[in-house]
């Protein structure tokens, strides 16, 4: 009698078929497969459970798992669509798709708004704006006087808050970004357009044994 040894393909938790993700995102099937390789590398870097934890996200971004950064935290939280503290493969691909050059600008504008709406109130409030400016100054070790920070925040609020209700709503944000498109530059990663060319090392077998 013959005996076959079969290799069981084991995917990460929350794995979704590349064809399904490609249909919903700006990526092709082979790009989603390449992203799976990237996802596996990040999600097995510390906890080795096939899910990206915040420390693994920080390690990938900063080569330091303990480096806290307000904006990286916000991006992690927005990638974590299920709000369970980790990013699974589907969340990773869907969220990265926002940063694809072919993704509609409105989607990028909406994502950036949620990013800056630190307390998820539906508005970017003056205090949030000030908190973000202070975080950046702290990160970059730039020193601006309190008066100058207040002036910059006040001026920006005045500029964006067209109905003068003291906070920035999504319509005001959209209008402001349309006049200042450079504000969206962080929302596009040019190399996502052809991951398989830019990162040939990600292109491996689409059926990978996690063992």
């Amino acid at each position: 009698m013959g005996c076959w040894l079969s290799k069981q393909v084991k995917h990460t938790p929350g794995y979704e078929e590349p064809a399904v993700l490609a249909a919903e995102t700006a990526f092709t099937v082979s790009e989603v497969e390449a992203l799976y390789e990237l996802f596996r590398k990040i999600s097995y870097s510390i906890f080795k459970d096939g899910l990206i934890h915040k420390e693994e996200f920080q390690l990938a971004l900063f080569k330091n798992s303990k480096k806290n950064n307000l904006f990286a935290d916000r991006i992690f939280d927005l990638f974590d669509l299920k709000r369970n503290g980790v990013i699974d493969f589907g969340e990773f691909v869907r969220s990265l798709s926002v940063f694809h050059p072919n993704t509609a600008q409105d989607e990028k504008i909406a994502f950036a708004f949620r990013l800056y709406d630190l307390r998820s109130t539906g508005f970017i409030e003056r205090e949030e704006l000030k908190e973000m400016v202070l975080a950046l100054l702290n990160e970059s070790e730039l020193c601006l006087s309190d008066d100058l920070v207040e002036t910059i925040v006040d001026q920006t609020c005045k500029l964006v808050d067209s109905n003068s209700d003291g906070k920035i709503d999504p319509i005001e944000w959209k209008e402001f970004v349309r006049k200042n498109p450079s504000l969206l530059k962080n929302m596009t990663l040019p190399y996502l357009k052809d991951i398989t060319m830019a990162f040939p090392s990600f292109v491996m077998s689409s059926e990978v044994d996690d063992e």
């Binding site: 990237l38 590398k41 990040i42 996200f57 390690l59 990938a60 971004l61 900063f62 080569k63 950064n69 307000l70 904006f71 990286a72 935290d73 916000r74 991006i75 990265l96 940063f99 800056y116 704006l129 973000m132 400016v133 975080a135 950046l136 100054l137 990160e139 970059s140 100058l148 002036t151 910059i152 925040v153 001026q155 920006t156 500029l159 402001f176 200042n180 450079s182 504000l183 530059k185 962080n186 990663l189 190399y191 830019a198 990162f199 090392s201 990600f202």
Partner: peptide, 25 residues
């Protein structure tokens, strides 16, 4: 002063997702 707070914020290294790709190559 003609500084826009959002322009300042966008300078954060936290927005640079290229690290995700570089670190994993």
């Amino acid at each position: 002063i003609n500084l826009n707070a959002f322009d300042i914020i966008s300078l954060s290294s936290g927005f640079d997702l290229s690290g995700l790709f570089e670190a994993s190559e």
